[in-house]
Design a protein around this nucleic acid. Structure first.
Lengths: 262, 262
DNA sequence: AGCGTATATTTCACTTATTGAAACCCGCTT
DNA sequence: AAGCGGGTTTCAATAAGTGAAATATACGCT
């Protein structure tokens, strides 16, 4: 009851994770890293291959398949928080010039960036959607851990990363004692640019934006999920994009010609 | 031997696909759509849940988990084609004002958008990364099916979608008869804007860009270099083992580009 | 309320399907 | 040649997954 685990599936998923982490690796490594016998790993990788979750390259190595990309993009498209927060991130970048992120708690006790906008300064912080970040010693972690800062935001200088300052505020659902932090919005900037004043200024903006996300223009808070079926204009970005400034395109419903069909 | 399938794993993956497609659905629907008994579906969904591949929302429905987003982003990051083609897509958008896409064949006999750039016209075509597109009646499909157009590009008006014209060119590897199409670059625009002349003009550009991708401006494929500011370090992704400091991403372009799925 | 339907969850006997050691088959290096 | 390391196949043991049925729960409907 408590633990209904299908060993086979679990193993296959671990294997998938290993392959995605590595980008490409031979069977032997995959088996070793996931603690499986070669024959078992081979069998599982083959079924993963048959379903498009992994594929093989010329050297025989295993690499992530397209199905992974596909499902990832779909999943991100269904994250309504992303579309809710997109304009907020845009605004923060505009106001501060620094990079802005949306993160949510992950299942393994860490957090994951779900959306991001790059800052406009030529020296700016850069990360990518899907990146996972620890909770210890980070502004995001503090908030997800339940911290409820006086002024509505937390600033951490040189926490996870040297020379980088993170300023974060929680998106909460519920009121009073029962409030729960469902996500965190943060602005991350090079520390050398952050004076106490600028931190305070950015903090005010972040806190204000974060607290307004679920309230909406009219006032009453709404549940964050509200997964509308249909095909919201999904978006997905490329984690590494040296040249192009804007990475995540937001759901621009304005006058785009259309989409759907499958 | 020929088909080594791990039924359990296959079922779980189907289930994962169903959940990602739906965005959110109750157990009963998931079971029905994947042709499983309720108890089996429940068991499998639970293990998917335990590993973060799905999660449950307040209504008890199942929805894609963060692990999916995470792996998807990672996988996309390892796709060297994406980084090679990114500047090309930028250029096409700049030249034509229309949306530009990179697609590759998928394992199930369709194609998937791996990257895209939105056009600049206020009325423009919009799709998303991860979207899968059929081969029949599409420009992309024709090229992946082996068609080798005279002028280097294929244009299809009102194919998959009404009022939309697609202009596509193949990225091939190998020469002469042994050339294989590994990906397709396409520009997609509202048909009303497409005169024979503009189609020809865009086609020329697309064909030129596509044929140059794997050749590179100076002969060998080069990566747009990684002048990423700050770090983005602190790769504390998983409490597992030391991971590569700066993610190798772009390192494997030359060899990795050589193949696609099976 | 009372009834009916539909879903969520648990149990459990039946085996089927997964497992890993060992054997085998490469291509390499010593 | 012999040795070595990775990939692949075989195969018997048995661990592990399966689904029907029972139970619990939740939601309309008259």
């Amino acid at each position: 009851m408590a633990e209904s685990s299908t060993r086979t599936v679990e193993r296959a998923l671990v294997l998938l994770g290993v392959v995605c982490d590595a980008g490409s690796l031979p069977l032997a490594d995959a088996a070793r890293e996931s603690g499986l016998s070669a024959s078992t790993a081979l069998r599982l990788l083959r079924t993963l291959e048959g379903t498009g979750f992994v594929r093989r390259d010329a050297d025989g190595g295993y690499r992530p398949g397209l199905r992974v990309v596909q499902l990832g993009a779909q999943a991100l498209g269904h994250e309504s928080l992303v579309s809710l927060v997109s304009p907020v991130l845009d605004r923060l970048v505009e106001l501060t010039g620094e990079s802005a992120y949306l993160s949510v708690p992950s299942h393994d006790g860490a957090a994951v960036y779900l959306a991001m906008r790059e800052g406009t300064h030529s020296v700016r912080h850069t990360s990518w959607v899907g990146r996972s970040i620890p909770l210890e010693g980070t502004a995001v972690g503090a908030l997800l851990g339940g911290e409820r800062p006086e002024k509505g935001f937390v600033a951490v200088r040189d926490g996870l990363q040297q020379d980088v300052t993170a300023i974060a505020a929680p998106i909460t659902v519920g009121h009073g004692e029962k409030a729960r932090v469902v996500a965190v919005i943060s602005v991350i900037a090079p520390s050398y640019r952050m004076t106490p004043d600028s931190v305070a200024g950015i903090g005010r903006h972040v806190a204000a934006e974060a607290s307004a996300v679920l309230v909406g223009p009219s006032g009453s808070p709404e549940e964050p999920d509200s997964t509308r079926q249909s095909d919201s204009t999904g978006q997905q970005d490329n984690p590494e994009q040296p040249r192009t400034p804007e990475q995540v395109r937001l759901a621009d419903t304005s006058t785009a010609v259309e989409e759907d069909i499958a």
